[in-house]
Nucleic acid binder design. Structure first.
Lengths: 204, 204
DNA sequence: TCCTTATTTTTACACTGTCTAGATAGAGTT
DNA sequence: AACTCTATCTAGACAGTGTAAAAATAAGGA
């Protein structure tokens, strides 16, 4: 069979389904993500995905894994174009975090919606990929927190604090959250982060 | 007609649907919330809810409003049983926040899932009730932040900081979040909050 | 070539949200 | 009391969804 004819096999249906899902969400929001629509967009029957993903939950995890990969890339890019000052680096991580949450809002919502994060019924390989990619972005933040002091008796308090802070800020005060502040203008996150008055570890 | 016979009218179907929805979620998670199941549990046909809510989105908003009411109550209760020291009060607010997020996790997830927060197609009265109740809990947090200094040039930085912090912490580090820390044990939130080193306003 | 496996389609089913038309109850109004 | 009018509810239908099973097709090796 020549390459010009349409083969029965798709070639890389798995990849096509992930891409289709991301596109559907970017175009029409989280709820537009549907197994059948993904299949249709990939040019394949609605039951075809079953051979690559155990079900819609499994496909969602795969999409979330891809999202976390983009996420880590976005944060890393922001870091590389920032001078190696500790505070500037940490600001860059948060900047990347918030920019991604804005630019890929539906994907971001999916990634951090805990009702999708039931890995128990998922193909182990897909679950593993998701966890690894998710840890990647956290590693960048952890690394950026390294130079700063922690609270006494909590070796990781800074990273927990900053992660909670930036994540909560992204969830609550991004564009389109109708619940947002009954309390005047929202400060820039950079100012919020500076308000933590983090201290460089002695001897650095 | 005597009160003993079953009337054609339900009596308070609207209320019954809200309760049914909350019960369904508490029993089987967020995804168990379904228009038809709510109707069934309220002992009514699947089309009956249409007269009280424009659709499932509208019912969800009503449930979220009820949730925010419980939420504010839980926070207020925690405040009243705490001595009127500013820092203790703020800790109490966060304690109430996190306890609620744990004890009513599906409801909490629903309340803060922005994909449900499209008020544009909703009955205005339902939307208004939701916004009012949502602002109630925020008011308590704002009030507890009142005694503390804000960052220069941001009159509300403390409340934004604390709200982001506690909300992010609740989302990321509650039980069952499979993405949680690749980084050792999670500190108590009280320690995290104390780490902010908030200062009482001069003259208080 | 034949067999085996991987991939996809077809068909079917239960469940969901929504819409329509019709039935019934409740509350006036005259 | 009879009549209307409105609110509420039921019954039925429809398109879309996820999932499962069986049949068809392609790909690759023996």
């Amino acid at each position: 069979m020549t390459k010009l004819e349409k083969p029965h096999h798709h070639g890389d249906l798995r990849e096509a389904l992930v891409i289709a899902g991301i596109e559907l969400m970017e175009e029409n929001g989280v709820d537009a993500l549907t197994l059948r629509k993904c299949a249709a967009r990939a040019g394949v029957s609605h039951a075809a995905p079953a051979h690559h993903f155990k079900g819609i939950a499994s496909l969602k995890i795969a999409i979330m894994a891809r999202g976390h990969s983009f996420f880590a890339t976005a944060i890393a890019k922001e870091m590389t174009r920032t001078p190696p000052d500790p505070m500037a680096q940490l600001q860059a991580v948060c900047q990347g975090y918030l920019v991604f949450a804005n630019r890929h809002n539906p994907l971001f919502q999916l990634m951090f919606n805990s009702s999708n994060t039931d890995l128990s019924t998922i193909t182990p390989a897909v679950a593993a990929e998701f966890l690894q990619n998710a840890h990647e972005s956290y590693g960048l933040l952890k690394q950026a927190c390294e130079p700063f002091e922690n609270a006494p008796g909590a070796a990781n308090s800074t990273e927990i604090t900053v992660w909670s802070l930036v994540h909560g800020f992204a969830m609550l005060f991004n564009k389109d959250s109708s619940r947002a502040a009954p309390t005047g203008p929202i400060p820039e996150f950079a100012k919020i982060l500076a308000g933590l008055e983090l201290r460089i570890k002695p001897g650095l």
